[in-house]
């Protein structure tokens, strides 16, 4: 309950942002932080809570993004309907990949690499078939208006991503307090022991990967509507898979607030290095990379772990699911 209260306060606080902050640039930063938090939370369900490290979340992200775009461009389907279909497709892709991998008992780095390979297969396919626009990419026509999910102000997009991200956090909160979550934790900590206790590991992992895929897909749909252009590298490229795992690991895997902390920290670090160094190509990104290493060095359990260690909000970080 306590966590739910904190969650409500944090998101209520964020919701007030557009009313207080008039700077479009800052609004955009907040939107991108929420978007990264959504990507990260999606990964966190499977990676943090389920212990299954995926390197291929672009597979779900890209499927959501392409679905909403292709439906609009090729079939004239409204993006709000596209959002529902895209989310379902992402979930279906996750179910397929999950079935193919968990069925054969792939774990650890094998699972990581096979998910990466699936994402690459989808990238190559989207580059070869006609209805995605192949290498030319797909451009969603400009049609400003909430009915077309192309809001005229940043505030509209802000509330869209706010709702999507909040829903992912609520689901993760539920995971932390449900039977399903307990089974997932048991599978993560020791799959064989969990089996011995009667947990159906396969079903639990399938549930996790489908939820994970669903939210990644929603992030992809948001991306498509916000930027209106996709190509195979944007949608299925490794950059999205890396961002998906970077955010929760920096923030604290297997914690409710980790992805939000991670998303905020990464944006702050990235903006700060750019402000500090300016525009010499390479140097600001090199500093960003170095800070990444330093963060891992001094916060091996992410920001949430650090907060817990410092005794701030003791429960917030450790209350969920302490790792064995």
């Amino acid at each position: 309950m306590r966590q739910l209260v904190i969650l409500a306060v944090v998101f209520a606080f964020i919701a007030a942002a557009p009313a207080i902050i008039t700077s479009e640039f800052t609004q955009n930063v907040i939107i991108m932080v929420l978007y990264a938090a959504l990507l990260g939370q999606a990964w966190n369900i499977l990676g943090g809570y389920g212990g299954q490290f995926s390197f291929g979340h672009a597979a779900y992200f890209g499927t959501g993004a392409y679905t909403v775009a292709v439906l609009q461009v090729q079939l004239g389907v409204n993006p709000w309907i596209g959002l529902v279909i895209g989310a379902l497709f992402s979930m279906a892709v996750a179910a397929f990949i999950g079935f193919a991998t968990f069925r054969y008992g792939l774990r650890g780095s094998y699972f990581a690499l096979v998910t990466l390979a699936f994402a690459e297969v989808l990238r190559i396919l989207s580059n070869s078939v006609g209805f995605t626009g192949a290498g030319v990419g797909i451009l969603i026509p400009l049609a400003p208006g909430a009915a077309n999910m192309q809001f005229e102000t940043k505030t509209g997009f802000f509330f869209l991503i706010w709702v999507l991200t909040l829903s992912s956090f609520l689901v993760v909160w539920w995971i932390g307090h449900s039977r399903f979550g307990a089974s997932l934790a048991a599978v993560r900590d020791n799959e064989d022991a969990a089996r011995a206790l009667g947990v159906n590991a396969f079903r639990v992992k399938m549930g996790a990967i489908m939820l994970s895929g669903l939210f990644s897909g929603l992030a992809g749909i948001f991306y498509a509507q916000y930027f209106l252009y996709l190509d195979p590298y944007i949608a299925y490229g490794p950059a999205i898979s890396v961002e998906s795992l970077l955010v929760p690991i920096i923030g604290g895997m297997g914690t409710l607030f980790g992805p939000l902390l991670g998303a905020a920290a990464l944006h702050v670090v990235s903006e700060a290095t750019r402000e500090l160094i300016g525009d010499v190509p390479g140097i600001s990104l090199a500093l960003y990379g170095a800070l990444l290493v330093v963060m891992v060095m001094f916060m091996p359990r992410g920001l949430a772990g650090l907060l817990a260690r410092l005794g701030v909000r003791r429960r917030a970080a450790s209350g969920e699911m302490p790792r064995a």
């Binding site: 490290f53 970077l246 990379g289 990444l292």
Partner: peptide, 13 residues
Amino acid sequence: ENILLVTLGLSIV
């Protein structure tokens, strides 16, 4: 997961 991040950070640097 930390090895992964460290090597990722290194590659960016």
